[in-house]
């Protein structure tokens, strides 16, 4: 069975793009967001999903089961997958993840299976559950500039049709706090890993020079770094999870990524954190919060 490789990052951190790119390496099978380790059992995962009005289960998990067990993602195979999952509500979440890894290995012969579920960045319990269940897993911590994440999060909330104006406002008021909380969780988590067990990359570096950055990742994993392998990672749109799924499991990755899954190199402009704190919005933060955020950002290579 192949080894688990986990991309750690909060939402809105290029996670769908970067995970799918890495997952396109010929020796890696890239899953969409499985949302499994957020709870202890499959039944608890499904209860959480239904609370979020995803009635048949996590779209990424449904698409994965449909793909690896039925060879296609159609409304019918997704319903079959949902039926199959429903019969296993008493399973431990890690058993379900093991099943996905085992089947993906059989189907693809991959040496690693890549999982990313950004919500775990906010759940210390889920992170620890994953570490205990997969002591041999390897981790890639992907970071994004705090102001880039804040802007992306705010756009996502404003454009969402799911939230009422009140629900949007609560989220917008806290948008600056998401980055330090998630990054602190991930830093604390990585501190309890062995030094060789994780690598940290900046999402912006992938956008600037994907070939070099992803080749380093492949090298660290002990995988092929030839031109064909690197070029495969530059074509995320070829992943079976990069397009819109059937109506009963349409997403499983960021909708914006699914809308435009091709990799477009760029040189993201990184705003100055000090400059933000001088703005009217930044003035709302007191000195201890400003210092803390600036230190944390500096620790991750952002000024």
């Amino acid at each position: 069975m192949s080894r688990l490789l986990v991309v750690l990052c909060p939402p809105r951190s290029f996670s769908s793009l970067i995970s799918t790119m890495i997952g396109q390496h010929p020796e890696i099978y890239g899953f969409p967001e499985l949302h499994l380790m957020i709870r202890e059992t499959v039944g608890e995962v499904m209860a959480w999903e239904r609370r979020c009005e995803r009635y048949t289960g996590p779209p990424g998990l449904l698409r994965t089961i449909a793909e690896i067990d039925h060879g296609a993602q159609t409304a019918e195979t997704v319903l079959e997958a949902a039926n199959w999952i429903e019969d296993r509500l008493d399973w431990n979440s890690a058993w379900m993840l093991d099943y996905c890894i085992k089947r993906a290995t059989e189907v693809s012969g991959a040496r690693y299976c890549l999982e990313k579920s950004p919500s775990v960045a906010f759940l210390p319990v889920a992170l620890e559950r994953m570490r205990q269940a997969y002591p041999d897993a390897l981790y890639i911590h992907v970071t994004r500039h705090p102001l880039g994440l804040k802007k992306s999060l705010e756009e996502f909330v404003r454009e969402s049709h799911r939230f009422t104006p009140e629900q949007k406002q609560v989220r917008l008021d806290a948008s600056m706090g998401a980055w330090p909380v998630a990054q602190r969780n991930l830093l604390d988590f990585c501190a309890s890993l062995a030094p060789g067990q994780y690598i940290r990359i900046r999402g912006e570096d992938v956008l600037r020079d994907a070939a070099a950055t992803l080749a380093q990742v492949a090298e660290w994993l002990g995988l092929r770094t030839d031109a064909a392998a690197v070029e495969a990672m530059l074509r995320p749109e070829e992943s079976p999870y990069a397009t819109l799924g059937p109506p009963n499991a349409a997403f499983g990755n960021d909708p914006k990524f699914i809308d435009k899954p091709k990799f477009r190199p760029g040189n993201p402009r990184l705003r100055s954190i000090d400059g933000f704190f001088e703005s009217a919005e930044g003035q709302a933060f007191d000195a201890p919060r400003r210092d803390y955020l600036a230190q944390l950002a500096s620790c991750l290579g952002y000024q």
């Binding site: 500039h145 994780y198 690598i199 900046r202 952002y302």
Partner: peptide, 10 residues
């Protein structure tokens, strides 16, 4: 941004 840290291991 002037940091070069593309591959920050461990």
């Amino acid at each position: 941004d002037d940091s070069e840290g593309a591959g920050d291991v461990g």
